[in-house]
Design a binder for these strands. Structure first.
Length: 441
DNA sequence: CTGGGGACGGGGCCC
DNA sequence: GGGGCCCCGTCCCCA
């Protein structure tokens, strides 16, 4: 017979004990603020504490102490409240730091919840989501491509040293292995619930995976994109992880590095920062990347979550960043490069024309145009209309041309290629920008 | 095999 | 502080 209320009652009691400092045998110092807790509870809730406390378990007579300055007391309050109540008080303001702290403390459940929170908070209109998902649905069943896992190494890098002497074969400690499996489970289930990624995404993922497998910089530590991920993929080869971590942090905390220790040497229980260390960094919970601004982290997180909130209205391709979309749009659909695609010569409005191929546009100089013999072909408005339609057929996301632009069109369709259209260059590029930009959001 | 084009991630700057 | 934009480096694909 099972009494369902027992667990919550027990947790309530423990929480009560914590509040009243009864039987608390553990102190956590976060930026000067002391939190009291029970080592049993911490041990059961956090991979970090599990490691930490198992390390100091021999000295149970001594009250355990941990010091953190990697996150704020407010953040730790949220974490600790979760530990003792199962309730996570997330807000748009604290989610990044809570996730970062959870990552440090190896609390995969919290990370998962934060992830979900961030996903749902990302500024994606429902319409776009629907579009995205309808695109993705086609491919859901076949989306068997495993996305690279980044947390594994993050764990190992952040698991400050007690187990770092393990040989690569041994992999993470038993505890971490557990966590890792659990995390995989979450990641997989989340992937299912958040819908599969579109074809394009899959392709990118495959690319990433390939990339990860190819890159094996085992010693050099970079904070650059790709490298960090590559390193994370190389988790089995992590004998030098602690050193890397130190190097990363030294690099990250460009402010006086002296006195800043993180997971090295025997002092695994504390991280000492200079008091005046500027808190100008946001650590990615998935990899070792650290950025200066929260907005940059938000941007960076998309490369892990696969979020692509910016669809190209012309071809349907989705981008994780608006500037990449803009760049793509200018390059592919606006023929912004004043270079003849064939002879690579500089072209102007007078010396060249814009050629359209499907939704793609580029420039050709008049000579190459004549050479190609496509200046005497009939106009095919229907084909033009067709190729102007967005790839996914979303009527609301038409990418239109300005009235002026349409007026100035001289569309010529090449024989056998219904998509080839030529437009006389007016080079009202600034106007094009004005006209089209609002649509690319 | 190689070079070009495009995608993409990071950093920095400006507003 | 955040968004937008630009530049740069890297990677991948393809002709």
């Amino acid at each position: 017979m099972e009494i369902s209320s027992h667990q919550s009652h027990l947790l309530q009691q423990l929480n009560e004990q914590r509040r009243q400092d009864v039987f608390c045998d553990c102190s956590i110092l976060v930026e000067g603020k002391v939190f009291k807790a029970h080592r049993n509870v911490l041990f059961a809730s956090s991979g970090y504490f599990k490691m930490l406390l198992s390390q100091s378990s021999k000295e149970t007579s001594q009250p355990a102490t941990a010091t953190f300055q990697a996150f704020s007391p407010d953040t730790f309050t949220v974490i600790l409240d979760f530990v003792y109540s199962g309730k996570l008080s997330l807000t748009g303001q604290n989610v990044i730091e809570v996730m970062s702290a959870a990552s440090f403390l190896q609390m995969t459940d919290v990370i998962s919840v934060c992830k979900t929170f961030i996903k749902s908070s990302l500024d994606i209109s429902e319409k776009e989501k629907d579009r995205y998902f309808s695109l993705s649905d086609k491919d859901t069943s076949s989306n068997g491509v495993e996305r690279p896992s980044f947390y594994n190494s993050s764990w190992q890098e952040e698991s400050s040293s007690p187990r770092s002497h393990l040989s690569p074969d041994q992999g993470p400690s038993i505890a971490s292995g557990k966590l890792w499996n659990k995390y995989n489970y979450h990641a997989a289930s989340q992937r299912n619930t958040q819908q599969a990624l579109a074809n394009e995404q899959r392709k990118d993922d495959i690319k990433k995976t390939k990339h990860l497998k190819l890159s094996q910089p085992s010693e050099v530590v970079h904070l650059k994109s790709g490298k960090g991920e590559a390193r994370t993929s190389n988790a089995s080869n992590n004998v030098s992880q602690p050193e890397e971590q130190v190097q990363i942090d030294a690099e990250v905390d460009s402010a006086p590095p002296t006195g800043y220790q993180y997971g090295q040497g025997s002092d695994t229980t504390s991280r000492s920062f200079p008091d005046d260390l500027p808190r100008l960094r946001f650590k990615c919970p998935y990899c070792t990347h650290v950025v200066k601004r929260k907005a940059d982290l938000k941007r960076h997180l998309r490369c892990h979550t696969g979020e692509r909130p910016y669809p190209c209205q012309a071809c349907g391709k989705r981008f994780s960043r608006l500037d990449h979309l803009s760049s793509h749009f200018r390059t592919i659909h606006q023929a912004c490069k004043l270079i003849c695609r064939k002879c690579k010569r500089h072209v102007t409005d007078l010396t060249g024309q814009v050629v359209q191929e499907g939704t793609r546009r580029y420039r050709l100089c008049n000579e190459c145009l004549a050479e190609a013999g496509i200046d005497s072909l009939p106009v095919d408005l229907e084909a033009e209309q067709h190729c102007m339609s967005p790839a996914d057929g979303d009527k609301d996301s038409r990418w239109h041309l300005s009235e002026e632009e349409n007026r100035s069109y001289v569309e010529i369709v090449e024989d056998g290629s219904a998509d080839l259209v030529i437009k006389q260059v007016e080079d009202s590029e600034e106007e094009e920008e004005k006209e089209i930009k609002p649509n690319i959001r």
